[in-house]
Nucleic acid binder design. Structure first.
Lengths: 244, 244, 244, 244
DNA sequence: AATGAATGAGAATTCATTCAT
DNA sequence: TATGAATGAATTCTCATTCAT
């Protein structure tokens, strides 16, 4: 996995496009509108004081979004519900996010950032492929432990936006899968893993298994520690299953 | 796993309940609407002749729904699109299905019926737990091979309806997972499988892995035979991984 | 004036464009959406019976729109007000018109059609350029006499949609102005009109004068016969003013 | 024309009235809003120093408004766009103008002031009614020559606010029309103009013609000198047309 | 059974205006 | 005076569903 392939594809690409349509049109058209005032997404006020306030508000909105999205799903969630849960006015949300969909993007992005950072920083410390695979499994589930709502958002809600899945999230998933596949390949090269299994199939299977565990956990009782136990056992199964 | 736990819980159970539906539903359903006229769900035409004719139309609608849902996702699909694809009038759909969501239900139900029938009829023929597990894996992926659209509907689109996931599909998934778990339990009892793995965790992992494979296949190039190869390799990995 | 320059530029050009965006997007985007059901604008049901019903509804909406637009102006008019005045549901309006703006288009178009038809059919009957000029003046004001609301819509409300003015109406105005200018040119050629006046300036002046009269009439007391008298007097002034 | 009939009717008269405003206004104005803080309209800074500074800013805003209004139209123009073009903060605009609409008022008022001043000061110097009429024509177009944006604002944008047209501008237009009509009356009294034309109709026709010329010029290529030429020719036509 | 015109509730988003700093 | 982040009312248009034919 090359770092570049993991680097976040900026979803902001479309932003700030001048929008050649007559201004009047812009007035009556809805999405993909670049609003001048907060054109650069999260405002970055100069003073630390101001930044804290703004950051607070953005965070409050994100936290509220996780909660409400997890409860109702993406489509059933009204922006006004998120606003209310965050204690801000409806319009305020649009000072920090371009659209309801971007709220979902942001939740996902933040999480995937952590995953990628981990892989960049922690994996190299592991001695061999099996250790790295176990570390990935621990991490993927560990990142969700204690964050049931977010787990649900990542495993369930995210898929509710077809556009998000196909345009935005898919590349990230693929990058992540590639990273896992790369571990398998390394293991096969060193003889740690059996040769008769396609790294890509194995990677997808592992990811799917983890995702399924997280899904069940999120939709079910979400007991403390359950994910950790599951991670350990799955790692055991996969490592033995992949042994030569 | 008792057979009864696998029997399809009639989805109608929840219907008619005043409004315990998730907000999602309330949002898109007309409130205070008399549903009386179509209260009895699928029409039950009297003569065999009529039934056949009706069945044709119902099937055409279902087939069209698979196609359009897979292409656009559940929420982005307009009932009128399905009607057009099926070559019927918008209103006709409501003679066969109570709502757009029921269309999705029905697709899922039909498929899960096949899975459950298989389990009831074929699994007992297998000699032991490992064979049964391999059979399940073959079957789950085999059922999707060649039906890419349906695979996408089952693995992706289904999750787009929060209500469907939580209220309707979850019990079926659980029944299915229980069936897999039961195989693990049996294997552990006979010493075919290791003891230090929770049957439920293993079952969820296996299901998730299969689901993940199907998802990637459906969203990707969906090559012929790919699912069969994947099934074989995953079965190898899991069987070795679960061996004592 | 060539006939072709007067022929109505079909505003429907944009209609029916497949709209390459993902369907999901279409769902959340507003304008310029081709809705399948009434894709061809006014529905044209087969039977005379049905046609009458549909025609009625479209007409009722147009009549209501003239009234409400004239009273409130374009921007201040809510689509729901028009619907209410027409005695139809809000959504029904969108079965007959793509947008609120198209309602305005349609009012204008219907009127300009009459003007153009008149010019094609009646002007050639007039013996010479002065008679034709007088006929045009009579007609332009005559078409508004007794239709105060429509006069206001054409002279005032139309200008409230910048886009309409610039993109849609301007070409029609220009065609009409060209037609008047052509009369002047002819008169100059036959020696009926003075040579030292630019036909285009004269044409614009004449149109502006008529428009100004109509505007004052529409915004004022709109007395019966006033436009006719004004037409006669203005014709007198312009014809003498243009005489060699 | 009596001076009093031309004196600017204070637009503030209508303000504060509970809500006799056209629906248009109610639609875009926040209801039940206390306007107290800016109740006194244009601020009246104490020291000459401050006034100059304020004047600068007020002017910058007005200049920016002309530009942006002309480009986008009234409704499609966002206050924030004007603020940006003027190089001030959004809120600053409200220190100098009560509302977005008042910006438009002010542009119009400033211009009409010039017209009225001209009429008071220059017309009496003219020897007779025909000379005065020609002077008026020269002036009305002359005032716009070189100020294409302002011409567009006066001839097009102004009409985009129904309320402005009906409540505010109409009296000014009427006063101006009365002034022209008075010239006609005088000419008829001295035998310089024909008797068989209503002074009011003639006045409205003349104004409309000038307005139409300006409109075409503003929306079109706006060539230097074009308005001057047009003024001369129109004056020729009208003077000959009105001759006895 | 079939049709498809009509319905109308619903929600994301915008932007004029305010007001704490 | 000036700022610009925050507000929140308001409205177009969509589309699942109904029902008269």
């Amino acid at each position: 996995m090359s770092e570049s392939s993991l680097s976040l594809r900026r979803r902001r690409t479309a932003r700030g496009t001048p929008d050649a349509r007559a201004p009047e049109e812009r007035a009556t058209t809805r999405p993909a509108t670049a609003r001048g005032r907060v054109a650069n997404g999260n405002p970055r006020p100069e003073s630390a004081d101001k930044r804290r306030r703004s950051g607070d508000k953005r965070d409050r909105i994100l936290k509220a979004a996780v909660k409400v999205f997890a409860k109702n799903g993406f489509h059933a969630t009204r922006v006004s519900e998120v606003a209310k849960a965050a204690g801000v006015a409806d319009g305020t949300i649009y000072l920090y996010f371009e659209s309801k969909e971007e709220l979902l993007f942001s939740l996902f992005e933040e999480r995937i950032d952590k995953l990628l950072t981990f892989m960049r920083e922690e994996l190299p410390k592991q001695p061999d492929a099996p250790a790295r695979l176990r570390a990935v499994i621990d991490m993927q589930l560990g990142l969700l432990e204690g964050e049931r709502d977010l787990a649900e958002v990542i495993t369930v809600i995210l898929r509710q936006s077809t556009r998000l899945m196909k345009e935005y999230a898919a590349p990230h998933f693929n990058a992540y899968l590639d990273a896992i596949a790369k571990i398998i390949v390394e293991g096969q090269a060193t003889g740690a893993f059996r040769q008769d299994v396609s790294p890509h199939i194995a990677a997808r299977g592992i990811f799917g298994a983890l995702d399924g565990i997280a899904l069940t956990w999120a939709l079910g009782r979400a007991e403390q520690g359950a994910l950790g136990r599951a991670a350990g056992q799955l790692a055991d199964v996969f490592l033995r299953g992949l042994a030569p």
